[in-house]
């Protein structure tokens, strides 16, 4: 498949989830806006919470897709799982860090 075709398929795949993606983006933007009004350092607990959320997401992803963690076997599988974990951790950090500023 060409890159263009892959992108078309991704668009068709994400279309049913457009509302959820929009909601997630809205939460992110709102968190940033709220954070603009706050000053101070980010609460030190945000990072470990984000990492825990990322690990939880990675561990739950197979089950949420009707599969099992035991079936994560190939390099691609593991990379996908790591990507899900990192992506979730990053998102949680970006949402929480502006909201949980000290001072």
């Amino acid at each position: 498949m060409s890159i263009e075709q892959i992108l078309v398929v991704m668009l068709y795949t994400l279309k049913p989830y457009a509302i959820w993606i929009g909601l997630a983006l809205a939460v992110l933007v709102i968190a940033q806006i709220i954070g603009l009004k706050r000053s101070g350092k980010t609460c030190p607990r945000v990072l470990p919470v984000s990492l825990v959320a990322g690990v939880a997401a990675a561990l739950l992803a197979p089950m949420l897709t009707g599969s099992k963690l035991a079936y994560v076997a190939t390099t691609t599988d593991w990379l996908a799982l790591v990507g899900i974990g990192l992506g979730t951790a990053l998102y949680v950090y970006l949402v929480l860090s502006p909201l949980m500023r000290k001072g």
Binding site: V8, Y12, G66, S67, A73, D77
Partner: peptide, 26 residues
């Protein structure tokens, strides 16, 4: 090789790809 990712592809992505095909997009 058996793969979780291929399962996800089958369960989540092949139907959207199919509909893109019906529309002549892929």
């Amino acid at each position: 090789e058996e793969s979780w990712a291929v399962w996800v592809m089958k369960e989540k992505m092949l139907q959207p790809a199919y509909y893109a095909m019906l529309n002549g997009r892929v």
